[in-house]
Amino acid sequence: MVLAPTGTEATVPLVAVLSGLFGLAIGSFLNVVIYRTPRQESLIAPASHCPLCGEPIRARHNIPVLGWLLLHGRCADCGSTISVRYPLVELTTALLFAGLCLRLSALQLLPALPAYAYLAAVGVTLAMIDLDHRRLPNVIILPSYVIIAGLLAGASLWTHDWSALARAGAGGVALFAFYLLLAVIHPAGMGMGDVKLAGILGAILGYLSWAALIIGAFGGFLLGAIVGIAVLAAGRGTRKSALPFGPFMITGAILAIFVGDPLAQLYLRAMGQV
Protein backbone atom coordinates (compact mmCIF):
# COMPACT_ATOMS: atom_id res chain seq x y z
CA MET A 1 0.00 0.00 0.00
CA VAL A 2 1.33 3.45 -0.91
CA LEU A 3 0.84 5.99 1.80
CA ALA A 4 0.01 9.57 0.96
CA PRO A 5 2.72 12.01 1.97
CA THR A 6 2.29 13.92 5.18
CA GLY A 7 1.51 17.62 5.08
CA THR A 8 5.12 18.59 5.52
CA GLU A 9 6.41 16.06 2.96
CA ALA A 10 3.78 17.12 0.43
CA THR A 11 4.82 20.76 0.60
CA VAL A 12 8.55 20.12 0.09
CA PRO A 13 8.38 19.97 -3.76
CA LEU A 14 6.37 23.19 -3.77
CA VAL A 15 8.86 24.87 -1.46
CA ALA A 16 11.69 23.64 -3.70
CA VAL A 17 10.03 25.13 -6.79
CA LEU A 18 9.42 28.43 -5.01
CA SER A 19 13.01 28.39 -3.78
CA GLY A 20 14.19 27.89 -7.34
CA LEU A 21 12.09 30.80 -8.62
CA PHE A 22 13.42 32.95 -5.80
CA GLY A 23 16.91 31.82 -6.77
CA LEU A 24 16.34 33.07 -10.32
CA ALA A 25 15.52 36.54 -9.00
CA ILE A 26 18.49 36.48 -6.62
CA GLY A 27 20.75 35.31 -9.44
CA SER A 28 19.74 38.34 -11.48
CA PHE A 29 20.80 40.58 -8.60
CA LEU A 30 24.02 38.63 -8.17
CA ASN A 31 25.01 39.57 -11.72
CA VAL A 32 24.85 43.19 -10.61
CA VAL A 33 26.92 42.46 -7.51
CA ILE A 34 29.52 40.51 -9.51
CA TYR A 35 29.96 43.35 -11.99
CA ARG A 36 29.77 46.38 -9.70
CA THR A 37 31.40 45.32 -6.42
CA PRO A 38 34.98 45.04 -7.78
CA ARG A 39 34.50 48.43 -9.43
CA GLN A 40 33.22 49.93 -6.16
CA GLU A 41 29.99 51.02 -7.82
CA SER A 42 26.62 51.38 -6.11
CA LEU A 43 24.40 48.31 -6.22
CA ILE A 44 21.30 50.50 -6.19
CA ALA A 45 21.84 53.24 -8.74
CA PRO A 46 21.89 53.57 -11.64
CA ALA A 47 19.43 50.91 -12.76
CA SER A 48 20.65 47.95 -14.80
CA HIS A 49 22.06 49.15 -18.08
CA CYS A 50 24.24 48.06 -20.97
CA PRO A 51 27.89 48.54 -19.95
CA LEU A 52 28.77 49.50 -23.54
CA CYS A 53 26.10 51.99 -24.63
CA GLY A 54 24.74 52.86 -21.18
CA GLU A 55 21.09 52.48 -22.16
CA PRO A 56 18.80 51.15 -19.37
CA ILE A 57 17.63 47.57 -19.71
CA ARG A 58 13.89 47.38 -20.28
CA ALA A 59 11.76 45.64 -17.65
CA ARG A 60 10.72 42.80 -19.97
CA HIS A 61 14.38 42.14 -20.76
CA ASN A 62 15.26 41.96 -17.06
CA ILE A 63 13.37 38.68 -16.57
CA PRO A 64 15.98 36.13 -15.46
CA VAL A 65 17.14 33.78 -18.24
CA LEU A 66 14.10 34.54 -20.42
CA GLY A 67 15.24 38.14 -20.97
CA TRP A 68 18.57 36.94 -22.35
CA LEU A 69 16.81 34.42 -24.61
CA LEU A 70 14.39 37.05 -25.91
CA LEU A 71 17.32 39.31 -26.77
CA HIS A 72 19.24 36.43 -28.38
CA GLY A 73 22.16 37.41 -26.18
CA ARG A 74 22.48 40.95 -27.55
CA CYS A 75 21.72 44.44 -26.28
CA ALA A 76 18.39 45.73 -27.60
CA ASP A 77 19.90 49.17 -28.29
CA CYS A 78 23.48 48.77 -29.52
CA GLY A 79 23.48 45.08 -30.42
CA SER A 80 26.57 44.30 -28.35
CA THR A 81 26.94 40.74 -27.10
CA ILE A 82 25.60 39.92 -23.63
CA SER A 83 27.70 37.19 -22.07
CA VAL A 84 26.03 33.80 -21.60
CA ARG A 85 27.39 33.93 -18.07
CA TYR A 86 24.47 36.16 -17.02
CA PRO A 87 21.75 33.53 -17.52
CA LEU A 88 24.10 30.81 -16.27
CA VAL A 89 24.56 32.64 -12.97
CA GLU A 90 20.78 32.99 -12.67
CA LEU A 91 20.12 29.36 -13.54
CA THR A 92 22.90 28.07 -11.27
CA THR A 93 21.55 30.05 -8.34
CA ALA A 94 18.03 28.75 -8.98
CA LEU A 95 19.21 25.13 -9.13
CA LEU A 96 21.26 25.53 -5.97
CA PHE A 97 18.34 27.05 -4.06
CA ALA A 98 15.98 24.27 -5.15
CA GLY A 99 18.55 21.54 -4.59
CA LEU A 100 19.45 22.81 -1.13
CA CYS A 101 15.79 22.85 -0.20
CA LEU A 102 15.44 19.19 -1.14
CA ARG A 103 18.71 18.18 0.49
CA LEU A 104 18.03 19.95 3.79
CA SER A 105 14.50 18.57 3.84
CA ALA A 106 15.92 15.05 3.53
CA LEU A 107 18.25 15.83 6.46
CA GLN A 108 15.35 17.32 8.45
CA LEU A 109 17.21 20.63 8.52
CA LEU A 110 14.83 22.75 6.46
CA PRO A 111 14.89 25.61 9.05
CA ALA A 112 18.56 26.08 8.07
CA LEU A 113 17.64 26.71 4.41
CA PRO A 114 18.08 30.51 4.64
CA ALA A 115 21.68 30.06 5.83
CA TYR A 116 22.55 27.62 3.07
CA ALA A 117 20.74 29.62 0.39
CA TYR A 118 22.72 32.67 1.52
CA LEU A 119 25.93 30.65 1.24
CA ALA A 120 24.97 29.57 -2.28
CA ALA A 121 24.34 33.17 -3.33
CA VAL A 122 27.55 34.43 -1.77
CA GLY A 123 29.46 31.45 -3.14
CA VAL A 124 28.36 32.09 -6.72
CA THR A 125 29.23 35.78 -6.34
CA LEU A 126 32.66 35.22 -4.83
CA ALA A 127 33.56 32.48 -7.31
CA MET A 128 32.81 34.75 -10.28
CA ILE A 129 34.65 37.73 -8.79
CA ASP A 130 37.67 35.58 -7.94
CA LEU A 131 37.76 34.21 -11.49
CA ASP A 132 37.59 37.73 -12.93
CA HIS A 133 39.74 39.71 -10.51
CA ARG A 134 41.71 37.18 -8.44
CA ARG A 135 40.37 38.49 -5.14
CA LEU A 136 37.62 37.88 -2.60
CA PRO A 137 36.23 41.24 -1.43
CA ASN A 138 36.03 41.89 2.32
CA VAL A 139 32.83 43.83 1.74
CA ILE A 140 31.14 40.50 0.96
CA ILE A 141 33.06 38.07 3.16
CA LEU A 142 33.19 39.91 6.49
CA PRO A 143 29.43 40.67 6.82
CA SER A 144 28.75 37.05 5.86
CA TYR A 145 30.21 35.90 9.19
CA VAL A 146 27.52 37.80 11.08
CA ILE A 147 24.71 36.88 8.69
CA ILE A 148 25.46 33.16 8.58
CA ALA A 149 26.02 33.02 12.34
CA GLY A 150 22.63 34.67 12.88
CA LEU A 151 20.83 32.40 10.41
CA LEU A 152 22.38 29.23 11.86
CA ALA A 153 21.55 30.39 15.38
CA GLY A 154 17.97 30.96 14.27
CA ALA A 155 17.81 27.47 12.79
CA SER A 156 19.15 25.96 16.03
CA LEU A 157 16.62 27.94 18.02
CA TRP A 158 13.87 26.54 15.80
CA THR A 159 15.08 22.92 16.01
CA HIS A 160 16.54 23.11 19.55
CA ASP A 161 19.71 21.51 18.19
CA TRP A 162 22.44 23.51 19.91
CA SER A 163 25.07 20.82 19.27
CA ALA A 164 24.92 21.63 15.54
CA LEU A 165 25.54 25.30 16.29
CA ALA A 166 28.49 24.44 18.53
CA ARG A 167 29.86 22.19 15.79
CA ALA A 168 29.48 25.06 13.31
CA GLY A 169 31.50 27.34 15.56
CA ALA A 170 34.22 24.74 16.02
CA GLY A 171 34.25 23.97 12.29
CA GLY A 172 34.60 27.63 11.37
CA VAL A 173 37.49 28.16 13.78
CA ALA A 174 39.23 24.94 12.74
CA LEU A 175 39.09 25.58 9.00
CA PHE A 176 40.08 29.24 9.44
CA ALA A 177 43.09 28.17 11.53
CA PHE A 178 44.08 25.48 9.01
CA TYR A 179 44.03 27.89 6.08
CA LEU A 180 45.81 30.56 8.11
CA LEU A 181 48.59 28.07 8.84
CA LEU A 182 48.87 27.30 5.12
CA ALA A 183 49.02 31.03 4.33
CA VAL A 184 51.81 31.54 6.85
CA ILE A 185 53.79 28.55 5.57
CA HIS A 186 53.28 29.32 1.89
CA PRO A 187 52.05 32.92 1.40
CA ALA A 188 52.39 32.74 -2.39
CA GLY A 189 49.95 29.85 -2.59
CA MET A 190 47.22 31.01 -0.20
CA GLY A 191 45.74 34.50 0.09
CA MET A 192 44.06 36.01 3.12
CA GLY A 193 40.81 36.14 1.19
CA ASP A 194 40.90 32.35 1.05
CA VAL A 195 41.59 32.24 4.79
CA LYS A 196 38.60 34.44 5.58
CA LEU A 197 36.37 32.43 3.26
CA ALA A 198 37.48 29.22 4.98
CA GLY A 199 35.93 30.33 8.27
CA ILE A 200 32.53 30.75 6.64
CA LEU A 201 32.69 27.43 4.82
CA GLY A 202 33.88 25.66 7.96
CA ALA A 203 30.89 26.93 9.91
CA ILE A 204 28.31 26.03 7.29
CA LEU A 205 29.78 22.55 6.77
CA GLY A 206 30.33 21.92 10.46
CA TYR A 207 26.66 22.63 11.11
CA LEU A 208 25.83 19.59 8.97
CA SER A 209 28.42 17.11 10.28
CA TRP A 210 32.11 16.52 10.83
CA ALA A 211 32.12 14.35 7.70
CA ALA A 212 30.78 17.21 5.57
CA LEU A 213 33.43 19.53 7.04
CA ILE A 214 36.33 17.18 6.28
CA ILE A 215 35.15 16.27 2.78
CA GLY A 216 34.32 19.88 1.92
CA ALA A 217 37.69 21.13 3.18
CA PHE A 218 39.78 18.66 1.23
CA GLY A 219 37.43 18.55 -1.73
CA GLY A 220 38.59 22.04 -2.68
CA PHE A 221 42.22 20.90 -2.80
CA LEU A 222 41.29 17.84 -4.85
CA LEU A 223 39.33 19.91 -7.38
CA GLY A 224 42.17 22.42 -7.58
CA ALA A 225 44.68 19.65 -8.24
CA ILE A 226 42.50 18.09 -10.95
CA VAL A 227 41.99 21.41 -12.75
CA GLY A 228 45.68 22.29 -12.37
CA ILE A 229 46.72 19.03 -13.98
CA ALA A 230 44.19 19.55 -16.77
CA VAL A 231 45.55 23.07 -17.42
CA LEU A 232 49.09 21.71 -17.62
CA ALA A 233 48.05 18.84 -19.88
CA ALA A 234 46.23 21.23 -22.22
CA GLY A 235 49.28 23.51 -22.41
CA ARG A 236 47.27 26.42 -21.02
CA GLY A 237 49.67 27.10 -18.17
CA THR A 238 52.85 26.14 -16.36
CA ARG A 239 53.68 24.94 -12.85
CA LYS A 240 54.00 28.59 -11.85
CA SER A 241 50.58 29.58 -13.20
CA ALA A 242 48.34 30.89 -10.42
CA LEU A 243 44.73 29.71 -10.32
CA PRO A 244 42.15 31.44 -8.10
CA PHE A 245 41.44 29.01 -5.27
CA GLY A 246 38.15 30.49 -4.06
CA PRO A 247 36.00 28.76 -6.71
CA PHE A 248 37.49 25.37 -5.77
CA MET A 249 36.84 25.97 -2.08
CA ILE A 250 33.24 26.95 -2.77
CA THR A 251 32.58 24.08 -5.18
CA GLY A 252 34.08 21.60 -2.73
CA ALA A 253 31.85 22.93 0.05
CA ILE A 254 28.70 22.80 -2.10
CA LEU A 255 29.46 19.22 -3.17
CA ALA A 256 30.07 18.24 0.47
CA ILE A 257 26.63 19.55 1.44
CA PHE A 258 25.02 17.20 -1.06
CA VAL A 259 27.29 14.15 -0.94
CA GLY A 260 29.57 14.57 2.09
CA ASP A 261 27.78 12.18 4.42
CA PRO A 262 27.10 9.52 1.74
CA LEU A 263 30.78 9.59 0.74
CA ALA A 264 31.83 9.23 4.36
CA GLN A 265 29.53 6.23 4.78
CA LEU A 266 30.88 4.69 1.59
CA TYR A 267 34.45 5.12 2.83
CA LEU A 268 33.65 3.58 6.21
CA ARG A 269 31.99 0.58 4.54
CA ALA A 270 35.02 0.11 2.31
CA MET A 271 37.22 0.15 5.41
CA GLY A 272 34.93 -2.33 7.16
CA GLN A 273 33.98 0.16 9.89
CA VAL A 274 30.22 -0.10 9.38
Rank of each mutant, 00 (worst) to 15 (best):
A234G: 00
I250W: 02
L30M: 09
P247L: 06
D77I: 01
G67Q: 11
D194T: 09
S28V: 03
L104I: 06
Y118G: 03
L21M: 06
P187D: 09
P87T: 07
L102C: 11
T37C: 05
S83T: 14
P38N: 01
L263P: 03
L232R: 00
L107E: 11
S105M: 04
I254R: 02
L110R: 13
G20T: 07
Y35Q: 07
R60Q: 10
V84S: 14
G219S: 08
A10C: 01
V32R: 00
E90M: 06
L157M: 13
L165Y: 11
P56I: 12
I140H: 11
R134F: 15
E9Y: 01
T93P: 06
Y86P: 02
L151M: 15
V184N: 03
Y145E: 08
W68T: 06
P56W: 05
G171Y: 04
T251R: 00
G123P: 12
I215C: 09
K196M: 11
A94C: 11
F176K: 01
I140F: 10
G150L: 15
T11Q: 12
I226A: 13
V195C: 09
A47I: 01
A183H: 12
C50K: 03
W158N: 13
I34S: 04
G206N: 04
Y118V: 14
L52F: 07
P247D: 00
L136K: 07
P137L: 14
C101W: 05
S80T: 14
K196A: 12
G216P: 07
I34E: 05
P111E: 10
A177V: 14
F218W: 13
G216D: 11
A4N: 03
L152P: 11
V184Y: 09
I129V: 14
G23A: 01
G150D: 08
V15R: 03
A127M: 12
L69N: 11
G172Y: 05
A170Q: 08
A183L: 03
H61Q: 08
I214N: 07
L52P: 00
A155M: 09
P143G: 07
G27L: 00
T6D: 05
L142P: 02
G27P: 01
R58M: 07
M190F: 08
H61C: 04
P38I: 08
S48V: 04
H133E: 15
N62C: 06
L151G: 12
G27I: 06
C78D: 09
P13V: 04
V32H: 00
L71I: 08
I215M: 13
K240H: 13
S28E: 00
A212N: 07
A174T: 15
G246Y: 06
E41I: 06
V173E: 03
H72T: 12
L95A: 15
W162H: 13
I34K: 04
R36N: 05
S163C: 01
R103M: 07
V227H: 04
A188W: 02
V32C: 01
V274S: 10
W162A: 12
A233W: 11
T159Y: 12
T159I: 11
I63P: 01
V65R: 09
K240D: 15
H72G: 15
R167A: 06
